[in-house]
Each structure stands twice: as structure tokens, then as C-alpha cells.
Nucleic acid binder design. Sequence first.
DNA 1: GCCTTAGGTAAACGGCTGCTAACCTCCCGG
DNA 2: CCGGGAGGTTAGCAGCCGTTTACCTAAGGC
Lengths: 190, 190
Amino acid sequence: MAEKPSRRDQILTAAAELFARHGFHGVGIDDIGAAVGISGPALYRHFRSKDAMLGEMLTSISERLLDGGQARVDAASSASEALRELVGWHVDFALDDPALITVQMRNLANLTDPDRRRVRALQRRYVEVWVETIRRTVPDFDEPTARAAAHAVFGLINSTPHSAHLDRDQMAALLSRMALASLTPVVVTS
Amino acid sequence: MAEKPSRRDQILTAAAELFARHGFHGVGIDDIGAAVGISGPALYRHFRSKDAMLGEMLTSISERLLDGGQARVDAASSASEALRELVGWHVDFALDDPALITVQMRNLANLTDPDRRRVRALQRRYVEVWVETIRRTVPDFDEPTARAAAHAVFGLINSTPHSAHLDRDQMAALLSRMALASLTPVVVTS
DNA sequence: GCCTTAGGTAAACGGCTGCTAACCTCCCGG
DNA sequence: CCGGGAGGTTAGCAGCCGTTTACCTAAGGC
């Protein structure tokens, strides 16, 4: 009935925390082991290598992000609702898993080549979901502009690990508001 | 008349580029040397250690950011002008030195303890300049909210290295517009 | 015309770290 | 009962990498 987080997952989340704080190369195999109560090389019963841990971590994040985002957009009944849903989804993700978001932002370069290709492909598709949604609600953005805007919004939302001084709900409200406002074109009223 | 970038500075900018791309631990002393045409340990004629390079790099960035930001705010004649100036200043910095911005975002954890203390102190003061300016233009933000908003804007602007598909001026205009819009409170008109 | 100094080199060392090897110990199905 | 797999352990190896050392050369000041 209760979920037993299968050792692999324990290790993955502990490693994510450590990678986020100290960087991939700043964390030793022994540190990761210690974080889950086993020591050092026992990790190799569960993962082929340290690189494989990072690889699995990042591909799973990217898949979850893409799937969740796509689902929200598909379920939305209007373009502006889709955008609100997308923002809310990404904000929730960033607030619930700050370590994963941090690792994804900072440690792409530490992946092996094949892993990096996979992750980048997934990320590109996620960005594309955003680009399409943005262009449907902000028609005066051309595609490159929409893409740059999407990256900027990611930066805004992903900044969350650096400022944990508000409680979760206030933070979610603030980030959503700012993200949506940043995408609202200047209304030339006067 | 012409500036001769004193070897030290050559090394520093080359190292910044490499640190930004591969992370501090992902770059070897030999790589840095090779990037400026000398090889390996010759760097120790100019720096006490690899850590010292990162330390000098980050303190100088933080000082430049703080000084420039403070100067812009002091020279502004209104609160909203101060905020526009601050945004413009940070955007220019991020666009002109993407490598430095990236290193500052990602590699704080790799500093030695005394260096980290110094850099954090400078960063805190820079954030404080933003917080005060934001609160003067958005009075309904309390201090923690303003601080979180400042970090979010940093994230937005600093996202620039991840999306170089627009030319400099368009990018500057887009980021400034988005940053200012994100700080504009929802106008409750209806 | 020397001697210092700045700036470079190649070689070697020492510690850290990812990974392997060899071994142990439950636990469980037949 | 007992044999085997799952999941630990410690010891050790191999390679990388920051740093030191010893040495070399060119460029000036006295």
C-alpha cells in the first residue's frame, strides 16, 4: 500500500541533492553511498557507473517535464489557458524538486555524449511545446523571439532554489504571476 | 594607447570561458594553459592556485555588478527610472559577458571558504540595491517578496547564454521588456 | 658586460577518486 | 537442508590532476 522507494530511487534522489549542491565532479561515490546509509562501491550493484546515475536522472526529469507539459496543453481548452497551465506545471515542478531542476540546469555538460543527445532532444521538444503555446497567445512574437522568451521564463521559474524565503504557496503565486506578466506584450494604451 | 590585456586578464577570460562550458572541475590546468598558448604549470607564474583564479574571477564580477548597479541607481532621478536603469545594466552585463555570468551562477560552490564569504557579501549588497529599488516602485511587495522577485529577474536575464538565437539588440530589448513587465504588478482594472 | 628578474618548459610526485576484486551474509524456493 | 542470487563489505589498483621542482632563456638596469 505505502510506496517503498526502491533503493535505486533512494540513491537517485540522494545523488540529485548532492549534485545540486556540490556539482557532479564535486561529489564522490562514497558521499552518495553515505547519503543512503551504504558505503561506497555498493552503488555498483544498482548502477553501471556514476555517469549512468546522472544520465538516468536527467533523462527521467526531461521526460517527466515533457510529458506533463504536453498533457496540460492538450487538456486546455484555450491558448491562454494552455499557457497558464504550462506555467503552473513548470512552477510546481521547480518548487517540488528544486534539486532536480538545479541539476538539469547546471550539469548537462557532464553527461556522456549519447546521454546528452537524448536529453537535449527531449528538452528541445519541451521548448517546442512552449514556443507553440506562446505564439498562440502572443502572435506578435516570431519564432526565434518566442524561443528566447521561453528560455527566459525557464530562467525566471528555475531561480527558485536560490530564494527559499517565502513559503511554497506564496512562491508559486509570485512566480506564476511574474512569468505570465513577462510574456504579456506591452499594451500600447497611450 | 591600445589596451594590452595583461596576460593575467587573458588567462582569466580564457578560464572563464572554459569554466562556463565545462564547469570548474571539468577543466584542467593544462586546458587553461593551452587556451592562452602556454602550457600547464606556467600559470603558476601568474596565480597562486586554480582556486585563486576562480576567486579573483568571481570577486571581480561581483564588484563590477555592485558598483555599476549602485552608480546607475544613484544617477537616476526617479524610482522607476532607477529600475529601468538597473535592468538595462544587468542585461548589458549578461549579454556582453555571458561566460562570466554563467560562472557566477554555477560555480559559487567551488570557491574556498574565505572567497565564498567575500563574494556572497558582495552579492547580498547587490541584491539589496535591487530590493530597495523594487520596493520603491512596487510598494505592495514586502521585503521577502521583493527579494524573491529580484532573484527571479536575475534568473530571467541570466538565461541569456542558453539562447543566442537573436542578435544582441533584439535580445536586449526582449529581456528588458520581459524583466520590467514581470515586475509590474497585476493592474486590477476590472 | 654582467646579473637579476620575468616568464616559460618538462618531469616528477602525491593525493584523490572511480571502479574492480574477492569475500561475506542473509533470505528464500524446492 | 541447501544452493544461489541479491546486496553488502573492505582492500587495492590505476589514472588523472593540481602543484612543486629544477632548469632554461631573453630583456633590461647598473
